[in-house]
Design a binder for these strands. Structure first.
Lengths: 334, 334
DNA sequence: CGGAAGCACTGAATCGGTTCAAAGACGGCC
DNA sequence: GGCCGTCTTTGAACCGATTCAGTGCTTCCG
């Protein structure tokens, strides 16, 4: 009796069968008005709460959805998460947020857990597309990639054209007169980082007099950016690039802090362009130029694709690609 | 056969009973080496993944823990979440992150869902301590309050001394010569906001020549801060307070943006002190003075208290209170 | 040689909802 | 009165892993 009355006790109290109680909960339109009221009264009196694992066991799937991100502390991902949550909640689903810290082992263990939970689906910004994602799919759990393009034969994905984003940033820097550009970000195994670099690289290749170098970081956070900034500053004024293009805004903020700390002025000594256009970019010490992505929309669309895949009889995988937009602020003004 | 082999099929393939398979999974030391290997082989060949709802149903509780926060987009909460996640993962628990947006209705619906899921416990920064939290406790689900003190008879809690935080901020502003101080934050029903104001108020009361006024906001985010800043700026230069103390850093960043946009200089025209000392405070246009809280530690401690409550036979509720620390930066420099 | 103890394994009962075929109740109509 | 259709309710089977009393076997000891 103690903490957990079950559906049988409710049935007993309301003087009906368990089947009827279940119907009141799930298809109330099948139950006659007075009966329904008696059942509701019994539920209230006993403080009954449906045991979701029992329900899940019978129905075969849960009412949750997994969201696997690289770093919850990155506002880009929390904005995406907001979009996912809004859409999921509208459909009565809860979101399980998993943080991988760019660590394949953590990613793997989170995916295992989500598989055991029989989530309805997984939204993931994968680190490496190893077998584990395929394994999920084989088990019938739909997977939607976000912030990364997938294989149209296998999965849906929602991405932003990162190559274009890289082009926008590089074009802007070249047009404002910069000739030595430093790309800062990593690890390069991350598709986002790779493609942002590629985009910049393609533009630079078309200009004989412009030079692009790469400084890889071990992560995409403020600390990594600060470390990179320190290295740039330590190399001496002569070795300084005239502009830095960072793989995301956190790195850019870190670089900005380190350079400022070393007595260099942004954008006078070095210009900076970031990526993501998180809200804090505009509020930075030197307002940051950045490549904007439709963050919440990314999340909403990803969740919608997942829901479509679970409900549609004949599902065709879709690859949605949004266009990024360059926002120019003080950090790269001439 | 398709997507989901169960424990029976594994048993069949390995030539053992289901009980043995279960033992291999849960208490491998009870099973002889060669048998264990055969079972593992069968699991691998079939790609078997344990159905967690069946396990939960039998065992009675899940391996998850609910974390209910006011706003995932606030770095303060993501830092707390990191702490919670670290500790939870170490103990094999997954974290379900719920966002309430300071909306009691959303809070209630999330708590209902967590109750249905039979989570091991709930960590919450509550909006209003209405009956729903008590209802959870009655059902045997431990609740730990964080960033807020609780009733020692009922629950554990982890908080930071917000009254002290308010005192620190106000004392600092008074000592640097400010005589008209504006408190910005809200809603005042939030205990944090209330107490930060109280602390400041107590200090001001001891100084006849200092005036403290309140501008309440509807939320604790950048947009609310910006709106408040606009109102301050619109009131005209003469009506301006000489310093603003904000209930958190997001509000402070919003106020900073609005004031700067209106052509006012910080700290020359108006000084600003925030609260939380999120990472972005130091990187702001004018580096923000702020009252620092041990964010990750708050999360870790909260999770530990919860785990203690679920494992200890005789549990005594504890109220942990950390001390905040004032970090002075440019925004309140004289 | 008998009995006890230890070990590895078995298999049925169990957790608590959901589902669906079937039964029951009632009214309308010929 | 008998038949049919509609609406409501019933109750047992079922989902899949866990658990524990119990079986069969071996070893040890007096």
């Amino acid at each position: 009796m103690a903490g957990a009355p079950n559906i049988r006790e409710v049935a007993l109290r309301a003087g009906v069968s368990v089947g009827t109680v279940s119907n009141v909960l799930n298809r109330p339109e099948l139950v006659a008005e007075p009966t329904r009221e008696r059942v509701h009264a019994a539920i209230a009196e006993l403080g009954f709460v449906r045991n979701d694992s029992a329900r899940q066991l019978r129905v075969g799937r849960s009412r949750t959805l997994g969201l696997v991100v690289l770093d919850v502390a990155n506002p880009f991902f929390t904005d995406v998460a907001r979009g996912v949550e809004d859409t999921a909640n509208q459909h009565g689903l809860a979101v399980i947020l998993c943080n991988t810290d760019e660590d394949p082992l953590k990613e793997a263990s989170h995916l295992d857990l989500l598989a055991e939970m029989r989530v309805q689906g997984v939204l993931i910004n994968p680190i490496d597309t190893d077998g584990r994602i395929a394994a999920l799919r084989d088990r019938g759990i739909p997977v939607v990639l976000f912030d990364r393009r997938g294989d149209p034969a296998l999965e849906c994905s929602v991405a932003v054209d990162d190559v274009l984003g890289g082009r926008l940033a590089a074009t802007h820097l070249i047009e404002t007169g910069h000739r030595t550009i430093q790309f800062v970000g990593g690890p390069l195994t991350l598709q986002q980082v790779q493609e942002r670099y590629e985009g910049a690289s393609a533009v630079v290749a078309a200009h004989d007099d412009v030079e692009l170098t790469v400084l890889t970081t071990t992560g995409l956070n403020v600390a990594a950016g600060r470390a990179a900034g320190d290295r740039l500053a330590a190399a001496g004024r002569d070795a300084l690039p005239s502009a830095v293009f960072c793989a995301n805004d956190l790195v850019a903020l870190g670089v900005l802090q380190a350079l400022t700390h070393a007595g260099l002025r942004v954008p006078h000594d070095v210009a900076i362009v970031g990526y993501d256009d998180i809200d804090f970019a505009a509020a930075a010490a030197v307002p940051l130029s950045s490549v904007r992505q439709p963050r919440q929309q990314l999340g909403r669309t990803a969740a919608e694709l997942l829901l479509a895949e679970t409900t549609e009889a004949e599902h065709e995988h879709r690859q949605v690609v949004f266009e990024p937009e360059l926002i120019v602020r003080d950090s790269s003004a001439r």
